[in-house]
């Protein structure tokens, strides 16, 4: 009984009977031993974050600010004036617009629908939705290569309806943002449906029952009760997806190599940075573009968090 962890048990036990008070009790900081364990686990994460997150960022910033005439913003100006700079950002923004809108609408509506099904059916559906997410990155690009090729695709009928007979007809500059949005959707949507389902499970049943008693139908309950209560999760999804979307790299890179260059090697900003660093040995301008991406992602995240009131306490 000297173990501080065990002393919590009576309080827990009492909570069932004493309701309110016990909740207050449970939220008290845990006693000494578990606090040390907490620091230990956080320390591991902080060490990883410093090595793999903060240090490379600091290095990128220092590279970006170093020019042949000392410290300055020359690399930012030079990289901005590259002919591929603005097109690369336009490509990615167009891709993000298509992807984020379709992902938000489809993920939320599928999660709401699945949540209304019986528990076993809903679990099956969530598992099926999640499956494509298991093949992320390079593996998914190889599969999509088959799917986009009219002679091998199971969806060839769609491509034939569009008069596509070769992979080159599918992989056109105008189609690229749509193709990458399709790939990103199938990689990520399943995982987010599971997350949204978890969020929906936190909606109190009393609330839903009360709405039903007041005569709310399935759609009204979904849109007026459930949706507002998971809004923060949707915002959370947008922030994370936007950041990963601006870093689009693997999909265009591999599709480009597989098609002999139909996706230019500077299609996305991240590809442009990679090309500068590893094809032309110009690390400083590449670092400047990476910093641009970081600032861009942070600004949009702050905007979404602020407008979406993500951290507001209800």
């Amino acid at each position: 009984m000297t173990d501080p962890l065990v002393t919590v048990a009576p309080g827990e036990h009492a909570s069932a009977r004493r309701g309110r008070r016990s909740r207050w009790r449970r939220e008290r900081p845990p006693a000494g031993g578990s606090r040390t364990a907490g620091y230990f686990f956080v320390a591991l994460y902080v060490a990883m974050l410093l090595c793999l997150g903060v240090a490379p960022t600091v290095y990128a910033i220092s590279l970006a600010l170093r020019t042949s005439h000392g410290l300055g913003v020359g690399n930012f100006v030079d990289s901005y004036h590259l002919p591929e700079f603005m097109p690369a950002f336009k490509h990615v923004l167009l891709f993000e617009a298509i992807w984020l809108v379709s992902q938000s609408v489809l993920v939320v509506s599928l999660a709401l629908m699945v949540h209304n099904l019986s528990r076993r059916v809903s679990a099956t559906f969530r598992f099926i939705f999640y499956l494509p997410g298991a093949m992320a990155g390079a593996a998914s690009v190889v599969i999509w290569l088959f799917m986009f090729t009219p002679t091998t695709s199971p969806f060839a009928f769609i491509e034939h309806a569009l008069h596509y007979t070769l992979l080159a007809n599918t992989v056109t500059p105008a189609n690229l943002p749509v193709l990458f949005a399709i790939m990103a959707f199938w990689t990520g949507a399943g995982g987010w449906i599971v997350v949204m389902h978890g969020a929906l499970n936190n909606v109190p049943t009393e609330l839903i029952e009360a709405a039903e008693i007041d005569g709310s139908n399935v759609f009204q309950t979904a849109l007026r009760i459930k949706l507002p209560l998971i809004r923060k999760w949707v915002v959370y999804m947008l922030v994370l997806s936007f950041a990963s979307g601006t870093q689009l790299f693997v999909e265009p890179q591999i599709l480009g190599i597989a098609t002999g260059g139909e996706v230019p090697p500077q299609w996305s900003p991240n590809q442009l940075a990679y090309y500068l660093a590893f094809q032309l040995d110009r690390f400083n301008e590449a670092a400047a573009i990476s910093v641009d991406l970081l600032v861009f992602g942070l600004l949009v995240a702050v905007l979404i968090v602020w407008r979406g009131k993500l951290f507001e306490v209800q």
Binding site: T165, L166, A168, T172, P173, G256, G260, G261, E262, P264
Partner: peptide
């Protein structure tokens, strides 16, 4: 030259000449 003429051709002309 340190760039690929073929890649430029592939991304600009191939989609057009192979279209129907």
């Amino acid at each position: 030259t340190p760039w690929s003429t073929d890649a430029a051709w592939a991304s600009t002309v191939v989609p057009g000449v192979t279209a129907t």
